[in-house]
Design a protein around this nucleic acid. Structure first.
Lengths: 197, 197, 197, 197
DNA sequence: CATGAATGAGTTTTCATTCAT
DNA sequence: AATGAATGAAAACTCATTCAT
């Protein structure tokens, strides 16, 4: 039972491992974790079923690595967005943040759903998501203080913003209702959030 | 392939069918849809595995009926809450609605997660949720008009309220962060929503 | 993951479980444990692969139950042989014991090999075999004392007898060499052992 | 399908082949044939998995060569022991033989078990063991004749001695029972065998 | 209606062997 | 000769669904 999981060093191998993660990401997002089997992942990645187990301990391991990609996709641009902010033009910042959140959702929400559903009971994933939300809230808060904001209950307000922005993005991308004018709703949400500060 | 799925008429049968749905509800919520098998559901319900297929076309069918229960648990009390409202005391109404949403979440959020994981991978699940949100939004809006509200973009505002209340409930119940004072956050959210009207 | 391993109560089920054990016994003996797969066992037993896991936790579990049968086959008749002995006619007793050992070997030695090889490192099987040898040695010794034997180092002598008889049986059945006259060798062995007492 | 299995001529190659055999020997003995895979053997030998098939037709081939080593380990010293014998001091010879057998068993018994498990399921393994036993029996018998022994049924007696010595060694090394005084049992066995001549 | 044993297709995973480099 | 990544057939095991009783 030699625990051999290749840690690929060569370009070709790294690329192959990434192909498998990508394939897993795509299929998990499209069809869900349980509706995707390793043979499909291998086929999508253009490799044999066997080699999948050369790079990953098991199917769940592919998901965990896909999760890392997902978290990167989602949070890295938000944080870099934050770095660019230098003036306290809240309306502008928020509207860009919403724009961004919607775009991210459009590209990654299927994976979000898969991860979220699978791991509402899984400690590792829970912890990772939680940690990132905390980081976001704290960085954003610090930024606001930097920009001269002085109000009370900063964490709670920032957290509310994050929560609402995420909800809205999900709503617009996924639960698109005919009777809702989403451009209008976006204005309402934006306005509502701005009044917090 | 005679499509015979009993529509139970007798009391005992109805009760048995309900036991199966309850069992499914419990296990789907606890462990997720794919981690629950029909034998377990039957055992939990105290019936034989075979008879499950006397009442349900397949496993998914149990989920759909469990979903109906879930939707009932969640929306019926909201709608009845609405019926009781006779004066436009928005702060009171909203705070009760939030209170209610949190409670409902506390009891049913696990099932929510399970169902959510099947969103966008199952048309019927999607459709039913969507229909109920629409119903909610429209009834709430009508109520507000009854109460004399005259503002613009009513649907969008109401929808925003529903969305935010749900997010907050989920947040408080599930993603409990140490650095957040949820009582304070609740006030902030309530206040923020009230200003919409 | 409900650990459901049927403990069959009904005649038909018991019979089916026994068919699977018999099939396992046969194939494990003929081809060895690792050269036999569950599908073959199921086929040999005339059942589906699935039901095998209704009666047994896993493949190893089949082997363990087959071992019980083996141990029964081997030791029960020896012990009952012992019960019949009433006079200290050692030559007669020993020659019957050898006869018996050879027969048992002829029928079960393949299984013996399979078990022995597999479990020289397995505590459960080791312990079981060891316990039975101890029981044999002690019962046999007690019998001899009953019959009036008074010599020293009884356990060691009896153990030697058991060991030699088993070796001879294995030798005659398995390692049949052309240059050996086994009838003659049997006499030699018998004679040699008798002189111990 | 060109049957190219290198017969290494160069020192380095020969040494490499031997390393593989040693590795196979070690692992087969420790974990059994089927619980050892070729990747592990290669790793233990410090070579690549691919090159293993440069020196061996297949996995079984490694076993067969490891078996040769085993047989050498076991029989060579016995035969050389025999060469040293010049006087018919049977007690001395036998007690040294037993001593030797026990020692050999202590070092190689795990491999013995592994090989034994393939008896009767592998013709070549069977044949080689058989041939060596025959050689042993015949050489030993010839020696005895040289030394002036004149009794009947020589082969059978010698074969019995070999068989008993082997059994005892296995017994002492492997099946160590608390209720047996092995020093005493060894005396009993030795004495018993001596009386054969 | 009810039971629960039985089915068998489908899934994850392993590993002897091959092959591109 | 040597490497170790890659292959893919085969194995153990699961489970939604059916069926004999």
């Amino acid at each position: 039972m030699a625990e051999i999981v290749r840690e690929p060093k060569q370009k070709r191998s790294i690329e192959k491992k990434e192909r498998i993660i990508k394939a897993g990401y795509k299929l998990f997002a499209e069809k869900g974790y349980f509706n995707t089997n390793t043979a499909e992942i291998a086929k999508e990645a253009g490799v044999s079923t066997g080699i999948v187990y050369g790079y990953f301990r098991d199917k769940r391991d592919i998901l965990l690595e896909a999760m890392d990609i997902y978290l990167n996709n989602v949070f890295t641009p938000i944080l870099s967005l934050l770095d660019d902010v230098t003036t306290p033009d809240f309306p502008f910042i928020l509207s860009r943040a919403i724009e961004h959140a919607v775009n991210v959702h459009r590209t990654n929400a299927a994976m979000h759903t898969t991860l979220h559903s699978l791991f509402s009971k899984d400690e590792i994933v829970d912890a990772r998501f939680s940690a990132l939300e905390e980081e976001m809230t704290k960085k954003l808060s610090a930024k606001l203080v930097d920009l001269g904001y002085k109000g009370e209950h900063l964490f709670e307000k920032v957290h509310t913003v994050i929560m609402v922005v995420q909800s809205f993005a999900h709503e617009e991308v996924y639960d698109h209702h005919d009777y809702i004018d989403y451009a209008e709703m976006r204005k309402i949400v934006l306005d509502m959030l701005l009044r917090l500060f």
